[in-house]
Design a protein around this nucleic acid. Structure first.
Length: 238
DNA sequence: AAGCGTGTCAACCGCGGGTCA
DNA sequence: ATGACCCGCGGTTGACACGCT
């Protein structure tokens, strides 16, 4: 099973852009498997989709990121980690690819430089990582931490010594459980903290005591992600 | 002027999740 | 329940531009 033979790759020409744009305008977005044939393009569907989403779509903002956009990206990245599509959803006119590129070129270096410079960090809100722990499938499947962890020198020392200890095999399961608990407790803290601080609008919709299962917690959180009022609150009080 | 290093951005690739037969 | 197919995402790569030596 493989790749389509003789499919064009590389940069898009103006003619191709016109064909693709015309096709989307005529048939609408989606059904990407039909797009190459409909548009008369010798491109794979993924390439068409990407070109549309990142370049041809109307209302795409180009050029320098404004200061407030950068600030928002940093805050959102703290909260969400590398979930670029979610971050892009909060920044009108910017695509996930743009934001990812901007982060990789500008902000990741800046952030790690700040880290090295000993910038103080928030204490409980996020795991000890510049890349926030993200509620991805690894978390749901039980393997928790996917991002590189920052530790203080003392923490690092403890961590290293813990690594050099010989651990019998059966303790691995216990470690996984501990990690899982640690992650769940992070989400619990975050969700409850937000709920506690947000008396008015979330007193009824905040997390109920019945939330014990991590999947429930995650689903609850995903629901909150689409709550603009909550977002405004989090960003204002972060 | 030429060579080299670095930054930027568009595009590709592989994978995971969802849907449907 | 299972496998095929499609979509969307994030990581990575490659090409080009630009600055420095």
């Amino acid at each position: 099973m493989g790749r389509l033979p003789n499919v064009r790759k590389g940069s898009w020409t103006q003619e191709e852009d016109i064909l693709l744009k015309g096709c989307i305008e005529k048939y609408g977005e989606g059904k990407w498997r039909h797009v190459p044939a409909r548009a008369g393009l010798n491109r794979c569907r993924k390439s068409c989709r990407l070109r549309w989403l990142n370049y041809l779509r109307p209302n795409i903002k180009r050029g320098e990121f404004a200061v407030d956009e950068v600030d928002l990206i940093i805050r959102l990245h703290k909260l969400l980690g590398n979930r670029w599509s979610l971050i892009a959803g909060r920044i009108p006119g910017r695509t996930a690819n743009d934001i990812k590129n901007y982060w990789n070129c500008h902000l990741s270096k800046k952030m790690s430089a700040e880290l090295m410079g000993g910038t103080t960090r928030d204490t409980i809100k996020y795991p000890t990582s510049i890349n926030a722990f993200t509620p991805n499938s690894d978390y749901l499947s039980g393997s928790m931490f996917v991002s590189e962890t920052y530790r203080s020198p003392q923490e690092e020392e403890r961590y290293c010594s813990s690594l050099t200890e010989n651990k019998p095999g059966h303790e691995e399961e216990e470690e996984e459980e501990e990690e899982e608990e640690e992650g769940a407790s992070f989400w619990n803290s975050m969700l409850y903290e937000v709920a506690d601080n947000s008396e008015k609008s979330f007193s009824t919709s905040g997390p109920s005591e019945a939330i014990h299962h991590k999947n429930d917690l995650f689903l609850e959180f995903e629901g909150w992600l689409s709550n603009m009022e909550l977002w405004n609150f989090v960003l204002e009080n972060e």
